[in-house]
Design a protein around this nucleic acid. Structure first.
Lengths: 157, 157
DNA sequence: TTGACAATGATACTGAGTCTCAATATCTTC
DNA sequence: GAAGATATTGAGACTCAGTATCATTGTCAA
């Protein structure tokens, strides 16, 4: 994410708070700076850890309270890969329809977009009488190609 | 699921146990009878409750130990709709590639299959150098059509 | 029947996420 | 810039799905 995009995302979030009559606090600033200061996917616990480095007063409760605001604002995307924690993606504002492949062996995540896929999903949902709210294609795989290239640091077996 | 399919699924699972040198116990029989005695999707806790009705000696631990065997055998499919519990689908042996739409309002789940979708997913994954293990398209939606028909017992708002 | 060991139940434990509540910070109004 | 209404906070208790432990029991091949 370019520096300008980061600032834009931050500004959008502060605007979002204002629109909802929510207050801009030091803790929220630290959290938002953290989220839009990285390109990486992260977990709630990671975000807590990183945000604490910026402002040690940030607590677990505040992180968990702020995450729904970030997803509601459309700037961060919440993902579920069947692990017992959720993964958050801060690159969502720019690419609102991208999907993910996760390597079960090394947890590597690759993002991709496909207009054909989006179109097909909409077609199917509408045909079944549903109004789509969110859709997530999750592909669990093993990165054969990367294994060959030595990029997949196979954890298990 | 027709009676014959239920018996076939049960038999397949008992064969699966035998192949892996696992033992056929009264508790496993009760669990398997329960799973293939319904068409419904269920949670681990529901399965525990139902199986206990057949054999009160079935414990939570055994249910949680048996579920991975059922999914590994390919007869039951584990799904994750972003809730804090997993949902299991006993109709998987017959329709190994079906996907799901869940209504966020009333929790109604509708299954669907699409060859075009499967094909497209494979194409994309292969193109990215991954060998697909499992793929799950999850669509969270609201069942507009059903709301109109009064079938969606809207829980929230 | 026996014996190796797979499987069991009870229960303690884990860990992500939620809730509570008294104390504090923000923001608006004057 | 004080005051007051109230949104927000941190600490820690709590929830709850799922896992681990371990002594006891059940299965099944020999």
């Amino acid at each position: 994410m370019a520096e300008s995009d980061r600032i834009a995302a931050k500004t959008k979030f502060l605007d979002f708070l204002e629109e909802k009559n929510l207050r801009i606090t030091a803790q929220r600033r630290a959290i938002v700076d953290t989220v839009f200061g990285t390109d990486q996917h992260f977990t709630a616990e990671q975000l807590l850890e990183w945000a604490k480095e910026k402002d040690s007063s940030v607590s677990r409760a505040t992180v968990y309270r702020t995450l729904p605001l970030l997803t509601e604002s459309g700037l961060v995307h919440e993902m579920d890969f069947g692990k017992d924690y959720k993964i958050y993606d801060p690159n969502y504002a720019d690419h609102p329809n991208h999907n993910h492949i996760i390597c079960d062996d090394c947890d590597k995540i690759v993002e991709f977009e496909s207009d054909r896929l989006d179109q097909l999903e909409d077609e199917i949902s509408t045909g079944l009488g549903f109004k789509v709210k969110t859709q997530q294609l999750r592909i669990n795989a093993s990165c054969e190609e990367m294994k060959r290239l030595g990029e997949c640091k196979n954890k298990g077996n």
